[in-house]
């Protein structure tokens, strides 16, 4: 494999609330970022994702160990030099009144511009290119406060690109976005990593999307240690299940998603296939039933008849049959029992 752009050596992250005290968040992190890869940092709340991001960015001192960008230690780089190699997208909201999208992206050229910050022809090109790369060209002249969350996030990513760094760190870039926008941003970031040869590390709570999009995962369980690998390897090794094990929620290694763990209200024998069957299963599981397709000996049986929008649900119970036109109707009836 090629040489890493960023690597940490025995990095111990945490805080020093006062001179004598220190709060350890995660010890001995040894991890690397390679050119052109999209890596997702995931972990339960409070595991220290943000602390790790801040430490990698040089914004917070590590308790021990080093973060290196190439040969240089992040904490030793002068601010301007660091800004040319590493750029950030943070969770804090920008509300600079009177700033246009293109002006925001142009701020990304600050590590390269003169004392007053005037853009050269090359700088202008880089800014335009960055906007194009995130598909936000038509937003260039819009005021920031007129942009939707998704548009704003694209512009913030364009700004980070305009810094022409080797590493981009993004702290929960999809947090405020709806599902289609999240997928769009993730796909875009993966493409950017591949096309530009930059390493992109992003923290996210969106596990399913991370599993599908990331080249590799940095998995940070509470108290550590940080585990890295292809998403699939971490699922197969059970690392995922362990990191997110908590009451009420269970990671399903088959689907790569989380399920509410509810006390079984009973077993339902479901007959049917296709999309309606999948969504009926989800509904029944949510209602607390254990769905056993073709299961025998269950007093409850649901049969699906008809296609798609015409689907009808037949509930068999103790020889009686009730007919429903919607999943909701079925659930209401089941709840009454």
């Amino acid at each position: 494999m090629n040489t890493p752009i960023l690597h940490t050596h025995q990095l111990t992250i945490g805080y020093r609330p006062s001179r004598r005290q220190q709060v350890l968040v995660c010890p001995a992190i040894n991890a690397m970022l390679y050119p052109g890869e999209l890596v997702c940092l995931i972990g339960p709340n409070g595991a220290g994702k943000s602390t790790l991001m801040r430490t990698l960015a040089g914004m917070q001192a590590p308790l021990e160990g080093t973060v290196r960008l190439g040969e240089d230690e992040v904490r030793d780089l002068p601010p301007r030099e660091l800004a040319r190699r590493l750029s950030l997208v943070l969770t804090e909201r920008i509300d600079a009144a009177g700033m246009r999208a293109i002006e925001l992206v142009a701020l990304g050229r600050q590590p390269y511009t003169s004392w007053i910050g005037d853009l050269s022809a090359h700088d202008e090109q880089v800014v335009q290119h960055a906007l194009r790369q995130v598909g936000a060209e038509e937003l260039a002249d819009r005021m920031l406060d007129e942009l939707s969350d998704g548009e704003r996030q694209k512009v913030m990513i364009a700004r980070a690109l305009a810094q022409e760094p080797v590493v981009m760190l993004l702290d929960e870039p999809t947090a405020f976005l709806d599902l289609p926008r999240r997928a769009e941003i993730m796909t875009m970031l993966r493409r950017l990593a591949r096309d530009t040869g930059r390493a992109i590390l992003l923290s996210t709570h969106d596990l399913e999307l991370a599993l599908r999009s990331a080249d590799r995962i940095w998995l940070l369980p509470k108290g550590g240690p940080l585990q890295t690998g292809a998403p699939e390897d971490l699922v197969l090794s059970g690392a995922f299940e362990q990191a997110f094990r908590s009451e009420g929620v269970q990671f399903d290694s088959y689907t790569g998603s989380f399920h509410m763990r509810t006390t079984a209200a009973g077993v339902i024998d479901l007959h049917g296939s296709g999309l309606p069957a999948i969504w009926t299963t989800r509904a029944l599981e949510r209602a607390g039933f254990c769905v056993a397709p073709g299961g025998q000996g269950s007093p409850l049986r649901v049969e699906l008849h008809g296609e798609h929008a015409e689907t009808r649900w037949h509930l068999h119970k103790a020889g009686e049959v009730q007919l429903f036109e919607s999943v909701n109707g079925l659930l209401v009836a089941l709840k009454k029992m």
């Binding site: 950030l88 600079a96 701020l107």
Partner: peptide, 15 residues
């Protein structure tokens, strides 16, 4: 100008 984005971003821009 960098501080318009807040101190964290300003720092990340090399300030």
């Amino acid at each position: 100008n960098a501080l318009l984005l807040g101190e964290h971003y300003a720092r990340s821009l090399g300030v």
